[in-house]
């Protein structure tokens, strides 16, 4: 249902942003040539019929031809997708692996100066725009120190249809800065979220009771408290993974990362509507998938949602 709505919006872009025939055939094509092209592309059919065709084609992975390069849009996207997904994956991973421990730490020891400092720095992370952080990183690590490359993916290895940068040293070097840039906002967000959830959970009766049972601190903090903070963290992280992919547009531009975001920007500049609409559909699809995964994770984490019978309902 959501996908249909997204597809419809993506589809309507064709009708609002100028006549594609003019774009493809050029300004000085004759009226006859235009009419032929219109028929050949199926653009003479009524709108509902074209929408049905658009959806069925899209479902089969056929997104049409790019106006700009006349390549197949599906192939263009497939070429770029691994770069963006790897970048987003690394960013999300960084955000989780750094954000959760920092959140736990600041939640457990809110009064330590380290915690206060982390919080202050996290404010910077939340407030600074992505492109500024990216540029700062480039200045420090690429220009001044020269440790990391400032653009591109480094060497990639082709595995089937997937091109990965994870198998080469230069690929790893290249992904560090963009992933950090992209993940920083999420990292600080997750850290603050985990922190406030930890503070909340540590006040609950079952934590007090766990202490009264004489459990080790480690068991109380990481077994009992952390697991209870996970439900909101999963929610936010899920939503954020979507926006990581969407935010990748900016990061990819700053680092010239050959991913979907860069492709999208080039398409916008050239009014390449098939690519733009396909990108839209793809992002919509990813969001739906992520939400599905998030819902499944809820069930894994929280037994109360599994809906077995018996006993009272908590809360």
């Amino acid at each position: 249902m959501v996908m249909l709505a997204v597809a419809f919006i993506a589809f309507s872009m064709f009708n609002f942003v100028g006549d594609p025939i003019v774009l493809i055939a050029g300004q000085d094509a004759s009226a006859e040539q235009r009419e032929d092209l219109r028929k050949a592309l199926g653009l003479d059919l009524p709108t509902p019929q074209r929408f049905v065709k658009y959806v069925t084609d899209a479902a089969q992975g056929n997104f049409g031809l790019s106006y700009r390069t006349t390549e197949k849009v599906g192939k263009m996207i497939a070429d770029r997708l691994p770069a963006t997904l790897e970048l987003s994956f690394m960013a999300a991973l960084m955000a989780l692996l750094l954000g959760i421990p920092m959140g736990v730490f600041t939640g457990l020891y809110p009064k330590l100066w380290v915690s206060r400092m982390l919080l202050a720095v996290s404010l910077v992370g939340i407030s600074l725009p992505t492109f500024l952080i990216g540029i700062l990183l480039i200045v420090i690590f690429a220009v001044v120190l020269g440790w990391l490359p400032s653009f591109g993916r480094g060497d990639v290895v082709q595995i089937g249809f997937w091109s990965t940068g994870f198998l080469t040293l230069s690929g790893w070097k290249a992904i560090l800065m963009p992933a950090f840039t992209l993940g920083l906002f999420q990292m600080t967000l997750i850290m603050r979220l985990v922190r406030s959830e930890m503070l909340e959970v540590l006040r609950t009766d079952y934590i007090k009771f766990a202490r009264a049972r004489g459990l080790h601190n480690r068991a109380v903090h990481f077994g009992h408290a952390l697991k209870n903070t996970m439900v909101p963290v999963i929610t936010i992280t899920g939503l954020q993974v979507g926006s990581i992919i969407a935010f990748a547009i900016i990061t990819e531009t700053v680092f010239s990362w050959p991913g979907l975001g860069l492709l999208f920007l080039q398409s916008v500049q050239n009014v390449d509507i098939p690519v733009m609409s396909s990108y839209l559909v793809l992002i919509g699809f990813l969001f739906v998938m992520i939400n599905l995964i998030v819902d499944i994770l809820y069930f894994v984490v929280d037994p109360r949602l599994r809906g077995q019978s018996g006993g009272g309902v908590a809360k």
Binding site: T204, Y206, F209, A210, H224, K227, N228, V301, D302, A314
Partner: peptide
């Protein structure tokens, strides 16, 4: 109702 951790058997 609140003394037991809801996420563990």
């Amino acid at each position: 109702l609140t003394s037991l951790n809801p996420l563990y058997k």
